[in-house]
Amino acid sequence: MTATPAAAAAESRTVGKRRTHPKLTLGALRFIGLRFGRMVLVFVMATLLVFSLASLVPGDPAIALAGEDADPATVALIRSELGLDRPWAVQYLSWLGGLLTGDLGDSLIYRAPVTELIADRFPASLSLAVTAMTLAVIGGVLLGMLAAAFRGRIADRVTTVLSTLGIVTPNFWVGMILILLFSFAIPLFPAVGYTDFTEDPVDWLAHIIMPAIALALAVGAELQRQTRSSVSDVLTQDYIRTARAQGLSRGRVLWTRGLKNGSMPVVTVIGYQMAGLLGGSVVVEKVFNIPGLGTLAIDSVVAKDLPVLQGIVLVTTVIVIIVNFLTDVLYTVLNPKVRVS
């Protein structure tokens, strides 16, 4: 007997409900296990690369610490204290052992543990990255939905042009333009500096908004393009036409069907872009003089403070690796094609 339209609709709702509770099958667990193994392998390769690059940096840290006019005996003593006179493999294993226990060594310039320096600067970088991602998600998804709803029309063309400009425009250039406009021409926000959120939330927002916009522009543009593509594909499916035929409004279909079913690629892009924001805000932090990891990294390069530079590069690399792994896990949970038995 042929099912009635009401029965077919009920069956469709039942299937939809079953799909909203994904389960990790053997195939999904195998997928996650492979990704975890790859994450560990990438981490080991990253430690080797970071430690090896230090030997390629011109200049001798011992001489930089002792001074150009120091006598050879003093330089030799400092080199021995730093362990630079030991074989490369011994130096690496000693450094890796300290790394696994949370010891990244001591700064040659600040004379303080690298872990403490990074811990002091990390909140500012994290605050900037989270604020930028929030702005990027709100703006990118909304513009992407607008473009998908009016695909081929003027709104779609305008948002496509804006997203292209956002991707190709350097974020430091955007930052300088924002400073000229909203710090000098129209003095609304301070040009440089940073205030911790716990000290003064209003002053924090005034200092963070322009660098966050500068960072969010390219990310939001990428999210706009991904949202437009995913939602547009969903809106061409047969069940969308069925929902419209059942009397659902255009807006409800767009948000409850289009965005929900097209969100998986968008969520994946958000995960990867967040990892990039945490490690890619170096120039923007320097432009706005934000005391984050980016500013500390540039200062350590100028001062040839290798332990600090190694620590920053390694910490940001580990963050990127972990975020990418979590994104892969989320993709596994959301994608039925991966959850095979």
Score class of each variant (00 low, 15 high):
Asp233Ser: 10
Thr316Lys: 02
Gly102Leu: 07
Val266Gln: 00
Pro187Lys: 07
Val130Thr: 06
Arg18Lys: 14
Gly97Arg: 15
Trp95Phe: 08
Val231Ile: 04
Leu99His: 09
Ala76Phe: 04
Pro5Leu: 03
Val333Cys: 05
Leu146Glu: 10
Pro201Asp: 09
Arg252Ala: 07
Val338His: 05
Arg241His: 00
Ser94Glu: 14
Phe150Cys: 05
Ala70Thr: 04
Arg228His: 14
Gly262Tyr: 03
Ser183Met: 04
Leu84His: 12
Pro291Leu: 03
Phe288Ser: 00
Gln246Lys: 12
Met176Arg: 14
Thr198His: 14
Val320Phe: 06
Ser52Asp: 14
Pro307Ile: 05
Lys304Gln: 14
Val340His: 13
Val219Asp: 03
Asp299Lys: 11
Ile154Cys: 09
Ser55Thr: 13
Ala70Asp: 08
Thr236Ala: 14
Ala9Gly: 12
Val44Ala: 13
Thr74Arg: 11
Arg225Glu: 00
Val168Leu: 08
Arg13Lys: 13
Arg157Tyr: 10
Thr256Ser: 11
Leu29His: 09
Val318Ala: 11
Pro291Phe: 00
Leu100Phe: 12
Trp173Cys: 03
Ile322Thr: 15
Ile290Phe: 09
Leu314Thr: 02
Leu143Ser: 01
Ile186Val: 14
Phe182Cys: 11
Leu306Trp: 07
Ser12Arg: 15
Leu108Asn: 08
Thr20Tyr: 14
Ser127Trp: 07
Leu296Val: 05
Pro265His: 09
Gly83Ser: 10
Thr159His: 00
Leu254Ser: 00
Ile208Val: 10
Gly279Tyr: 06
Ile319Trp: 09
Leu180His: 13
Ala216Met: 02
Phe150Gly: 08
Asp196Gln: 15
Arg339Lys: 13
Glu285Asn: 01
Val302Gln: 13
Ala185Cys: 08
Phe189Val: 08
Gly144Glu: 02
Ser232Thr: 03
Arg79Tyr: 05
Trp173Met: 12
Arg79Ser: 03
Arg13Pro: 04
Arg18Trp: 08
Gly152Cys: 07
Leu181Val: 12
Ala64Ser: 15
Asp120Pro: 08
Val323Leu: 10
Val158Asp: 01
Glu285Ala: 00
Gly27Met: 01
Leu82Ser: 02
Gly144His: 00
Val137Asn: 03
Leu215Arg: 02
Val174Leu: 09
Ala7Thr: 12
Thr47Ser: 15
Val192Ala: 14
Val168Asn: 06
Leu165Cys: 07
Ala148Thr: 07
Ala46Ile: 13
Arg244Gln: 15
Asp103Pro: 01
Pro5Lys: 06
Thr317Arg: 06
Leu117Phe: 08
Ile298Met: 13
Leu235Gly: 01
Ile78Pro: 01
Ile312Cys: 06
Val302Thr: 11
Leu205Asn: 06
Leu235Val: 01
Ala89Phe: 14
Leu215Pro: 00
Gly139Thr: 06
Gln246Pro: 05
Gly292Lys: 07
Gln224Leu: 09
Leu48Val: 07
Thr101Phe: 07
Pro113Ser: 04
Asp203Leu: 06
Tyr92Ile: 01
Trp95Ser: 06
Asp106Pro: 08
Leu223Asn: 01
Arg225Pro: 04
Tyr239Met: 12
Gly294Asp: 05
Trp88Gln: 10
Pro123Val: 01
Ser163Met: 07
Ile270Lys: 00
Thr164Val: 12
Ile177Thr: 13
Trp88Asn: 10
Thr159Asn: 04
Phe325Met: 10
Leu49Val: 10
Ile177Arg: 09
Arg13Ile: 06
Ser300Lys: 06
